[in-house]
Write a protein that binds this DNA or RNA. Structure first.
Lengths: 129, 129
DNA sequence: TTACAACCTGGAGTGAACTCCAAGTCAAGT
DNA sequence: ACTTGACTTGGAGTTCACTCCAGGTTGTAA
């Protein structure tokens, strides 16, 4: 799969894909004879994972660390799990924050409706006088 | 309330508070005789709201726009509500993204446990031979 | 074989949101 | 009066995560 196809498929730009590879977020993608990237099954899985994590705000650095630990092989299994667990914790916290903001927004929006209602009522009162 | 106290109370830095004021996110805070900021009830409410929205990832620009619409008075009521509704929509989308990432993380973490279990089983099998 | 689009690399540039700094003012304690 | 520490302003610097660019190479269709 070419870089343009992968970019299209995951809603990223080719620049971003190259950037990810450059900083070691994506392991070196195999090249064709001519030197062009040719993404395979595993690469796509990795892209999908990264895309999902990034869209959830997981820091690039954490993901790079995680990917780097695959170089260490089995000895780093615990360390890798550690990172995932840590990020999971952060995510739970962040979801709670977003939820709190959502509640606040809902409250404020509801108040706007109430206020409009109040304004209408006042208008009606005025007319009735 | 001094800027340091407000910063402490909301877990922001004094620099951030001044920055917010500079860019019009926070209406000009009243000053003491000597020219120092003296945050009042309303200012604190505003800080709290901004802090909450920002921690949920609502863009500074959207909040500035919202705050600016208070200058227009009642005529901008609808516009203000519009912004809140728009941000609410974005938030719902973002929460879904975070949730999806959380699910993926949970799955991966569970796999680590399974893998460890498999490894242990293999080890046991080896011993039993 | 000749266009021409898509790809390559290394490096520079961008936008968002702070964060830091210099130079100065002011209030409180000794 | 003098020092100390918190405050002021305007402006410059930093970090993160891309995003763009120049200059060159490759693949495909006419």
């Amino acid at each position: 799969m070419t870089i343009a196809e992968v970019a299209e498929k995951y809603g990223l730009t080719t620049d971003t894909l190259r950037y990810y590879e450059r900083i070691g977020l994506l392991a070196p993608v195999p090249r064709t004879k001519g030197g062009n990237r040719d993404y395979g099954e595993m690469d796509l899985r990795a892209v999908d994972f990264i895309k999902c994590m990034r869209s959830a705000g997981v820091a690039v650095e954490a993901l790079v660390e995680y990917v780097a630990l695959f170089q260490e092989g089995d000895s780093a299994r615990e360390a890798r799990k550690e990172i995932l667990t840590e990020q999971r914790k952060l995510l739970v916290t962040r979801i709670a924050e977003l939820q709190k903001a959502l509640d606040k927004l809902d409250f404020k929006i509801a108040n706007y409706d109430t206020a409009v209602f109040e304004a209408e009522k006042k208008l009606k009162d005025t007319k009735e006088k």
